[in-house]
């Protein structure tokens, strides 16, 4: 055994940069790591990769109503042309934008308000938080039926209440009326999902360092200034994720409009998803429905890019081995 006792070893210049292992080599070294994610990937592959491929294929063909794939004919981009030139496309798109933007905006603002009001500890806070979270937990199907009943034009509680306090006279139509129906549904949607924003932002608030707020207070910042200059910037990351998730969720809403109005009256609550459903399943117009779906994929990919970027922010800074 060689001993280097008492010997001074010194290399003044680092040697040449090490040769990097090739991708294949690195994959081989970490081959057991993949076993951990294999089950998850397999499930996702079956339930996602195939449908995506299939949808893209459908969107370039004309497929008979029977969905008999053997009889489909290639039509190029005809389906896309049909989508983009139809009058209803712009109407539905505009309604989707109103639905998504207003739902997201109000859900986020109500959630932010609730999170801030609930941040300070007080007796019954956990109970209050629990009650506010119930709408998020119950199924959209249940919520739709309950609100449909609340909005009922003859026996609905809301209309009756407005009459009793004298704001309106006679029965009020909320969802059977094409000028108010979309907004009435947005209320339901906000009711259903504001507490999601609340819980995310509550979690985010807990990561705002107390010392920062104290420092701001010592520096003479008012409560509003502390909120604006300290709390809000600290919430930026959570807010981005929350808003993105809300936008995606709202853009993809189906149950509330489907059960409450079925897209009516006269298409006033038709949004992309319900429209796709109607095209495909009620009119068996598979190709056009698929073309819509592919366009939607593209929109989602863009949103998804920002979503993933927001989610994995700082991820590689964390220790790992």
């Amino acid at each position: 055994m060689s001993s280097v006792q008492g010997q001074a070893i010194f290399r003044d210049v680092p040697g040449p940069a090490p040769k990097q292992a090739s991708l294949g080599q690195r994959m081989y070294t970490s081959r057991f790591d993949y076993l951990y994610i294999a089950p998850a990937l397999l499930v996702m592959l079956i339930v996602i990769a195939y449908p995506v491929y299939y949808t893209i294929e459908l969107s370039f063909y004309k497929t008979p109503a029977s969905l008999s794939l053997a009889d489909k004919t290639f039509t190029g981009i005809d389906n896309y042309r049909t989508v983009l030139t139809s009058a209803i496309f712009w109407k539905v798109t505009w309604q989707t934008i109103i639905w998504t933007v207003l739902s997201t905006l109000f859900s986020f603002l109500l959630g932010l308000g609730a999170a801030l009001a609930l941040h300070r500890a007080f007796i019954g806070r956990a109970l209050l938080r629990g009650l506010l979270l119930i709408p998020w937990v119950v199924s959209a199907v249940a919520a739709s039926y309950v609100w449909k009943w609340l909005y009922h034009s003859d026996f609905g509680a809301i209309g009756a209440l407005l009459n009793q306090i004298g704001l309106t006279k006679g029965p009020v139509n909320f969802i059977d009326n094409s000028t108010t129906s979309l907004y009435a549904l947005i209320v339901v949607n906000v009711w259903k999902e504001f507490s999601f924003a609340m819980i995310m932002l509550m979690a985010g608030l807990q990561t705002v360092p107390e010392s920062l707020l104290r420092a701001a207070q010592v520096d003479g910042a008012s409560a509003w200034q502390r909120f604006w200059h300290v709390t809000l910037p600290q919430l930026q990351g959570v807010s981005t994720v929350t808003i993105l998730l809300l936008v995606v969720q709202n853009f993809n809403s189906f149950i509330i409009p489907f059960i409450m109005t079925g897209g009516g009256p006269v298409g006033s609550t038709q949004i992309w998803i319900t429209h796709i459903y109607e095209l495909a399943f009620l009119r068996q117009n598979w190709g056009v429905g698929a073309a819509y779906a592919v366009l939607l994929f593209l929109i989602m990919m863009v949103l998804g890019y920002f979503y993933v970027r927001a989610l994995t922010r700082g991820d590689d800074k964390r220790a790992g081995a």
Binding site: I48, V248, F251, N252, Y277, A280, L303, G304, Y307, V308
Partner: peptide, 26 residues
């Protein structure tokens, strides 16, 4: 673990949340 493709696969998994149920129905 830091295996090759980790980020890509993680993104792919997260992206599942972006797709609405309806477009996968058929």
């Amino acid at each position: 673990f830091r295996f090759p493709g980790r980020n890509f696969l993680f993104f792919a998994v997260l992206l599942r949340n972006m797709f609405p149920a309806v477009v996968f129905l058929v």
